[in-house]
Amino acid sequence: MSAGLLTVSPSPHIHTELTVPQIMRGVIFAMIPALLFSIYNFGIGALYVTGLSVLFCVAIEYAIARYLLNRAASIYDGSAIITGMLLAFNVPSNLPWHIILIGSAVAIGIGKMSFGGLGNNPFNPALVGRVFLLLSFPVQMTSWPVQGATFSLDAVTSATPLGILKEGIRSGTPVDTLLSEMPSYTDFFFGLQAGSLGEMSAFALLLGLIYMLYRKIITWHIPVSMLVTIVVMTGIFWLIDPTRYASPLFHLLTGGVMLGAVFMATDYVTSPFTHRGMLIFGFGIGVLTVLIRLFGSYPEGVSFAILIMNAFVPMINKFAKEPRYGVVKEKRK
């Protein structure tokens, strides 16, 4: 007989291998293609911003948990690293360090820890940080370095395709003319465009998506419903007036749509529980994104759309329930 006492616990006695640290590692792994592409595209600046952002986020989470909340540091689950990376993915690659620090502090401090840490935050922390920075430092947050500018942090800046489009339409230029001055859709797909650090390459982001789907970290519901909604909605407008509205493909491949659909909207904590809820959530983000892009004053609306839909998650959870076994649909009261 073995030494020591036997363990007794309620069933089940086995557990899946996919636990929180594994999931977090998987997500980080899925973000690596986008990060690598960003380094290739923007040079060492991208790595610098990402590294700083991760460092700040982890340090701030550690400090808050340890000294403010007096509890065990929660950094080992890896969620702070993800928040840091996502924040970096959402900012230009030449952002000065003090702005990154402020962004990290807002993301972790206000967006996450003030609600009780991982699992309790209603809004995506990285987006809270990003939107805070966008509103507080509009100039720095919208000056994107031109790709290929390797090490100089004050490189020449250019506008994003969406920015050019918005400005152009405002001044009355037809979409065709504007598009002809921009790179091709293939270039967009692989990421040859101006923009935030991690959002440019749809290809790299899709690699991450495929990996996460394969590992069963996320399901297809949110990305697919969000992307389909955007395609359908922009498609309708495009069919109505192609001179004033860009094609669905343009909208799909530019700005933060892919980043949002793959990494931001699929955040467990701030998205609905059920598949039905996820479909509604993705649909809502899609609609809001398109409305902001086409009719709002900002050229890009993914961050706002996701944050707004985050606020609706409790309501979606309440109403979008899974079908139950053996329960006939309850009559409406």
């Binding site: 006492l5 036997l6 363990t7 007794v8 616990s9 309620p10």
Partner: peptide, 9 residues
């Protein structure tokens, strides 16, 4: 004396 180790909630 303990006769086993409880490991549930």
């Amino acid at each position: 004396k303990k006769t086993n180790v409880y490991d549930g909630t």
